[in-house]
Amino acid sequence: MTAVGAVLLHTSPAHVPVFDALRDRNHPGAVLRHLVVPQLLARARVEGPEAVAPALLEVLAGAVARAAVPVLVTCSTIGATAESLAPELGVPVLRVDRPMAAAAVAAGRRMAVLATVESTFAPTCELLAEEAGERPLSISRHLVPGAWERFEAGDIAGNLALVAAAADALAPAEADVIVLAQASMAGAADLVTTRIPVLSSPARGLAAVLGPQPSRAGES
C-alpha cells in the first residue's frame, strides 16, 4: 500500500494540479491522494450541504479505510458538513478555508467575501463568525458575475481575471481584508492591484492538514 500524507476531496478536477504544485513547492515528499466527486457540489447547491452528508461519509470512509490519514476538503460549500463527519471517520477532517478564515479575522473586522457561486456565502460567513468568536465582524458579500461559468467551461484565466477585477473594484475604505471564498479563486490573488490584503485558502489549508514535514536525509 502506498503511503499517503493526506486525502484531498475535490468537487472539480481543476484543483488537483493546484494542490500538487503547492505540495511540490512547500511540502516536498508528501504524498496526496485525490478524490474528485463533482456531483457532491451539484447536489449541495440544489438541496443544501447537509443533504450530501451520507454520500460524503461513504466516499471518505472508503478513502480512509485504505490509510488512516487526515482529510482536506477543498470545496467550501460542503466543508462544514465534511468536518462534522470526523468522529465517524476516526481521522481529522479539515475544510480548506478554515486556516484562511482564522487569518482573516486576525487581520481586521471588516470582511469583503468574494465568491463565484451563491451557495458558498452562507458557509463562509458562518465560518468567519465561528473563528471570530465574540469579536464583532462586518461582512459584505460580493458575487462575481460570469466567473463560475468560465471556470466550468475550462477558462481558468478568464475566471481569475474576473475575480481579480472584482477585488480591485473594492475601495480600501470598504474592507480590512478580502476573502476569496473558494479554492478555485486563489490564483486571482496574484493578479490584483488593490492595497487591501487578499487571502486565499489552498496553501494555508494544505499546510494545516500536512503539518510539519520531516527533514530529508542530509538536511538539518
Rank of each mutant, 00 (worst) to 15 (best):
M1D: 11
A3L: 13
G5V: 05
A6D: 00
V7Q: 08
T11K: 04
P13A: 15
P17W: 09
R25Y: 00
G29H: 05
H34L: 09
V36D: 14
Q39T: 15
L41Y: 12
R43W: 08
A44Y: 10
V46I: 13
P49W: 05
L57F: 13
V59H: 03
G62L: 01
A67E: 11
A67W: 02
A68H: 09
A80G: 13
L85Q: 05
L85V: 08
P87I: 02
M100A: 08
A101K: 05
A102E: 15
A107Q: 11
G108E: 05
G108F: 06
A115M: 07
T116V: 14
V117Q: 12
V117Y: 11
F121M: 04
T124E: 07
L128T: 11
E131K: 06
A132P: 12
E134Y: 00
E134V: 12
S138L: 14
H142S: 03
H142W: 09
G146Y: 11
W148G: 01
E149D: 14
D155L: 08
I156V: 15
L160H: 11
V163Q: 01
A164L: 04
D168H: 08
L170H: 03
A171V: 00
A181I: 05
A183N: 11
A183L: 11
G187W: 10
D190M: 04
V192Q: 07
T194V: 03
P197I: 07
A203T: 09
L206T: 11
A208N: 07
S215D: 11
E219F: 09
S220Q: 10
